[in-house]
Amino acid sequence: MKVAGVILAGGQATRMGGGDKGMLRLGGVRLLDRVTGRLRPQVETMCLNANGDPARFAGLGLPVVADPVGGFAGPLAGVLAGMRWAGAQGFGQVVSVAADTPFFPPDLVERLIAAGGGSSPVLAAVREAGRVRRQPTFGLWPVALADDLEAALHEGLRKVVQWTERHDGREVMFGSSDAFFNVNTPEDLARAELML
C-alpha cells in the first residue's frame, strides 16, 4: 500500500520557550533532519505541517501545509492538513509522526499498515506500568475520513483518541516508550543527547 507521510510541527512549543522545536540540534543535527531521515524510507512522499511563514523551512525541501482550522487546534488539525495534502496527491492513507520525536521505530509505517483495515485509523501504542498508552501523534489515517475529522474539529473536538474511537480505531503495540520519546523541554533535549 502506498502511503504519504506528514510530520507534525504545528504546535507552539511553549514548554521549550516558543519557536520551532524541529530546528533544535540533537547531536549536531536538527531534530527535523533526524525525523525526515527516519520517515523518508518508510513512505512514498511526505510534507511538513507547520503554521506561520513556511519560508523558514525552505531548506528542508518539503511542501509545508498549515492547519486548515485556526486557533492551534492540536495534532488532529495537523493530521487533517496531512490528509488533505495526501488526498490531493492521490493517496488514500497518510501516516503522521511528530517533529520532536527523533527515535521512532524504523518499521513504524509497515506495522501500522499491517494492522490497518484501510477504513479505520491506527495508532502506535506502548505498554507502560501494565496499561496501554497510545501515541496520538503517530498514526495511520484514512484520507476518506477527512471531512468527518474537519467537522469534528469545528465542533471543538481536540482529543485524538476520542475521534479514533468513533471510527473503530486500532492500536499497534511497540516495545519501548523510548522510541516515542519527544523533546518538549530543555531537560528533554539533554536526555535525548544521552539517548543518542
Rank of each mutant, 00 (worst) to 15 (best):
R30V: 03
I113E: 11
E171Y: 14
R84A: 12
D67V: 05
A129M: 11
G59L: 02
M16D: 08
A99Q: 05
L39W: 02
I113L: 15
N182I: 00
G37C: 09
D178S: 13
L24M: 13
D67E: 10
E193F: 11
G70K: 11
L157K: 13
S119K: 09
A50M: 06
Q93V: 00
M195I: 13
G37R: 05
M23R: 14
E150D: 11
R127D: 06
V161M: 08
A66C: 12
G74R: 07
P75L: 07
L24I: 05
K21E: 04
V65H: 03
N182T: 15
L80V: 14
G118C: 08
E187T: 12
D188I: 06
V143L: 07
E171S: 15
L149R: 00
V35G: 08
R134M: 10
G59V: 08
G78P: 10
V172N: 02
A129W: 07
G52Q: 04
V172L: 05
L145Y: 04
R133S: 13
G19Q: 02
P186Q: 04
A125K: 00
L60K: 04
S177F: 13
V6H: 06
D147S: 14
D20G: 01
G5R: 06
M1I: 05
G169H: 09
A114Y: 01
A58F: 11
G70C: 07
R134D: 09
E165I: 03
G18A: 13
A125E: 08
G82Y: 12
L24E: 10
R158H: 13
A9D: 08
V29S: 03
G118Y: 08
R38G: 09
L153S: 05
V160M: 11
F138D: 01
R191D: 12
L60D: 04
G92C: 10
G27A: 10
V126R: 00
V109F: 01
E110C: 08
P186C: 06
A129H: 07
G71Y: 01
R30H: 14
L62M: 07
R111F: 12
P105R: 04
L140D: 00
V95A: 14
F180E: 01
M83Q: 15
G90E: 09
A13K: 01
G5V: 06
A55L: 14
G11W: 00
A73M: 02
L153G: 08
G28S: 08
V122Y: 03
G19K: 00
T36A: 14
T101W: 01
I113T: 08
M83H: 12
L112A: 00
K159P: 08
L145W: 05
R40N: 05
E110A: 15
A152G: 11
E155T: 11
